[in-house]
Design a protein around this nucleic acid. Structure first.
Lengths: 248, 248
DNA sequence: GTCGGGCATAATCTCGATAAATCAGAAAAT
DNA sequence: ATTTTCTGATTTATCGAGATTATGCCCGAC
């Protein structure tokens, strides 16, 4: 149920020819992670075809292994597979982004409310710790922004996951996780990291404080605003680009 | 996004040795459907191991094809795959059933509200048609209950899908569909079909009438009650059995 | 009598080859 | 000029065999 590719040590840049499996127990999982990374960061363009023969040489795995990894990605809706016409990177659109955003608000607020209601001391500690880790990397972001982008993404995800970690519903966490990945893709595709005039840090802080104060209504409202602002920023920066996905 | 194995002509009993693909465009999809059917109806016991070598002969496909089909089923959370220890039928538990039920109510009511708000004449027509088809098979259910169980399941699903067909959110429909399958498995496993003293027909009618009258609040409430009653019936009949899943 | 190590068995996982299907382009017919 | 058909080439889908890993059992030691 839980994320198949969790615990990834986002090491920024990976050696292209490296055959180190980075903690993946099987080659399928290894290929799955690598493919997902490449889709999320935009190296594999939305809508483009995923030719097995071509990817075989690039990822150094057999065709069956590759197909299995691609099938796993269909679950996350990051890859589509149609009849006898092979796999494609899932297309993007403004309409889908809007849908993802609305559903995220819907699920995220519910998960947050349940976490606030059920959370114990360990949950609070986890939230504070994740916030601290995120803040640290944000401080350093002003100096050398480039190589820390992946690190920030990782810690941002960790923070938001820590917030809802105490939510008892596995299904809710599962669906929320899928949508978070979708949203992460749009965020990276929009190159929103290049220009963050917005004070995301303050938003995170406000959400955390509301959560720790057990103010569910306030936390939910702040979380919704957070998602909404991210959405607005993405549409402003790259809204036109999302409307016309590149073809392969 | 939409259901991979839609449009299945639930023909009741399938020839075990038959190699007719029943509308599946690829062998993977064929194996996927057959596996899902067998998991949903309980032929493959929850928690039991899915040995590829063994299933190869039964489903008449190669190992790679089988693995790919199983990977697809991981998406629906009907199969789990752990490290180097192969695939297993997803386990069941009372806790999971409760989770599934709560999330179903949460998503189902939202989808229904949106469908009621957005639905046009075609949506209304689809609802009425699906209700009619369901009613027909329910009439015949009193005479020869046995062979019509699968048919009833199919039309029941079609009815509930018709109700929320006008919901514009693909993600909401997608998640709802996954949970419906989960719920369907529990329902079949509980053998609830053997004893339906409950007047499901009246509940369906009430939901439909509220939806067509565009009374969103009433429809949502009725839908919640509907799911809750199904849950209660399942727990009453087979609650103890769900607590201790069989091992393979 | 119980625990730990090592071997045999069995299953998973992976790969390259083969067959089927789709797509693009050119030639022919209307 | 437009449509249709045919052919070649690329890609997908599938399979069975081989390498790698987990599992169960036996035996010896304590």
């Amino acid at each position: 149920m839980d994320d198949l590719a969790s615990g990834g040590t986002a090491d920024g840049v990976s050696a292209p020819g490296g055959d180190e499996r980075r903690g993946a127990r099987t080659l399928v999982e290894f290929a799955y992670r690598k493919l997902r990374r490449d889709i999320l960061c935009g190296r594999l363009e939305p809508g483009s075809r995923l030719r097995v023969e071509q990817l075989k040489s690039e990822y150094q795995v057999g065709s069956s292994t590759l197909r299995e990894a691609l099938s796993l990605l269909v679950a996350d809706a990051l890859v589509t597979s149609e009849g006898q016409k092979g796999f494609r990177v899932a297309p993007i659109s403004l309409e889908d982004l809007r849908d993802v955003t609305e559903m995220r608000k819907f699920l995220e607020t519910r998960a947050l409310r349940e976490a606030i209601a059920q959370g114990d001391d360990d949950w609070e500690a986890g939230v504070v710790a994740a916030y601290h880790r995120l803040s640290r990397v944000e401080e350093r972001l002003g100096e050398t922004p480039e190589p820390l982008a992946d690190e920030w993404e990782e810690r941002n995800r960790a923070f938001h996951e820590a917030l809802i970690a105490a939510c008892p519903s596995k299904w809710l966490r599962h669906f929320r996780s899928i949508l978070y990945h979708q949203s992460e893709r749009y965020r990276r595709l929009s190159l929103i990291a290049r220009s963050i005039p917005r004070d995301v840090h303050a938003e995170h802080k406000a959400i955390m404080e509301a959560a720790l104060a057990r103010d569910a209504d306030r936390a939910a409202r702040l979380s919704e605003d957070h998602v909404d602002r991210t959405y607005a920023a993405m549409v402003t920066i790259a809204g036109d680009r999302f409307g016309t996905p590149a073809k392969g």
